[in-house]
Write a protein that binds this DNA or RNA. Structure first.
Lengths: 125, 125
DNA sequence: CCGGATCCATTGCGATACTG
DNA sequence: CAGTATCGCAATGGATCCGG
């Protein structure tokens, strides 16, 4: 652990992370720091969902914004978008192969969330 | 793994994640989805840094935005802000105990970033 | 009906200048 | 050095319309 930290402690100055633009953590940051991306990926980690189903799970997001986020995730190769030419229209979203690799990360976020919630109760927030 | 997924596949509908506002992943999302939070936490995971040092590592962030993000992280109990009453002013930031619990998560993001980068090279992007 | 595109009103953010 | 203050623009939300 200590050793792992030492490998990046001079981020932007060592061989693994020589430049800001090629730093892996900067890359991940760009992928998931969209306003709703983590939640979208999380919901899709259980299986594919329709547009309206995702929207229902995200009460605070506007339709336009959700469309933007889904398009961005699609461009980054994290989710698939499947359009069924039926009436009424049906569009399904699912994780790509690469997107599925993010599931352990999402699971760990979930665990941290539980831990964080407990600590904040203890520390009376 | 499959079992773990089954525990949240009805997120917002089961006992662990009954409501949007109490869902652990929503909580984590609020903590780290700020425009620069992941990167700030990552840089601080190697040790405390001064305001100007963080700024130097983030060429694209404005001073105002960096201040906002640091204040928000402080409010959420993820980082400490230490002011030294000297001239010129000196302010240091570091992870709190809770913030340190996020380091494994950040390490996993870093690993995913490396993996994602490799795959995109292979798939000629 | 569903997914998405369009038109404004509002908010947030960046650039710059200024201060303790 | 580490912020605040101010202003103008770009991103965002809400309502509406559209096409299948």
């Amino acid at each position: 652990m200590k050793k792992e930290i030492s490998l990046h402690h001079k981020c932007h100055m060592n061989e693994r992370c020589a430049k800001y633009n090629t730093c892996p953590i900067v890359l991940v940051h760009k992928l998931i720091s969209g306003k709703w991306k983590i939640l979208i990926l999380w919901y899709l980690s259980s299986g594919c969902l329709r547009f309206s189903e995702i929207k229902r799970k995200l009460p605070d997001v506007t339709q336009k914004m959700l469309t933007n986020q889904l398009r961005s995730l699609e461009e980054d190769g994290l989710i698939n978008r499947t359009v069924y030419p039926v009436v009424p229209p049906k569009v399904e979203y699912s994780l790509t192969k690469i997107g599925e690799n993010m599931i352990p990360l999402l699971e760990q976020m979930y665990s941290f969330g539980i831990d964080y919630g407990k600590r904040n109760i203890i520390e009376k927030k």
